[in-house]
Design a protein around this nucleic acid. Structure first.
Lengths: 133, 133
DNA sequence: ACAAGTGTATTAGTTCACATAGTACACTTG
DNA sequence: CAAGTGTACTATGTGAACTAATACACTTGT
């Protein structure tokens, strides 16, 4: 399971949504699997059930999960949600590239950063000082 | 000069800051050049002078501009601000890469998107449908 | 000295998003 | 019927962002 940072400024609801999207992208949860109940997850994170409910509603609207009254919420089987997530991720990344380009970064520099991130063993990422001197 | 989108949800102050940073990155304003006065820019954008003042304070804190009481605000001569902006842009892009990686996108895909953006003539960017089918 | 224009500071008030709190209802399962 | 589930609703607290109004210090030109 993922962690919540209540002081990050990032809305809790968004953190929950992105947390589950990432879990599914990484294959840590699979289609058909039951999600934690709204109340239990709220209890676990010490947050309000309404916030969890809101996050689940977003996830359902995006096709990542589906909910059944009286039974619970479940991870979607099909790839509709997955494809949508990938598409959105690409759009977001595209926006990031455009912003970097507008600030004067070259395509070469950006690809260098990409390589650096994918080489990094996923713990330290601020150490990756790209040649800028 | 840049445009403001008062309904975008992005704080006006941030839009002003980023607008001038972009102008400088593109070379549309140069070192020593005088900035619009706090009051005149507020009048031009139909916003509150306090908001402009706040944005100018941020720009000055980042070394992009400097202000002189009674005279006005001016674009910085040296590259201190520029370097800081580049460094921040790289960090932001690094974060975007990490997020994309966490969602399952490959380094190859990201580089493809980078190339696509840098090939695009800077007007249409939603049309750049990267091969995902 | 004066006036006009500049940056800067302060206080107060509005608006809005976010999260919380509490309650209530519909449904499924045992 | 009871317990657990999703869902809906209203009310409240909090903080960020922006507006509003005013005031002060400084520079420039007359």
């Amino acid at each position: 399971m993922f962690q919540l940072d209540l002081k990050s400024g990032v809305p809790i609801c968004d953190q929950i949504v992105n947390g589950f999207i990432k879990l599914k992208a990484l294959g840590l949860i699979s289609g058909g699997e039951q999600m934690p109940s709204v109340r239990s997850l709220a209890l676990k994170f010490s947050i309000n059930p309404n916030t969890v409910q809101k996050a689940y509603a977003v996830l359902e609207a995006q096709g990542i999960i589906y909910s059944v009254k009286g039974r619970g919420s479940f991870v979607s089987d099909d790839d509709r949600g997955h494809s949508a997530v990938i598409a959105r991720a690409k759009e977001d990344f595209c926006t990031a590239v455009e912003r970097a380009r507008d600030l004067g970064l070259s395509a070469f520099e950006l690809k260098e950063i990409v390589d650096g991130v994918y080489k990094t063993p996923k713990s330290g990422h601020k150490e990756e000082k790209n040649a800028d001197g």
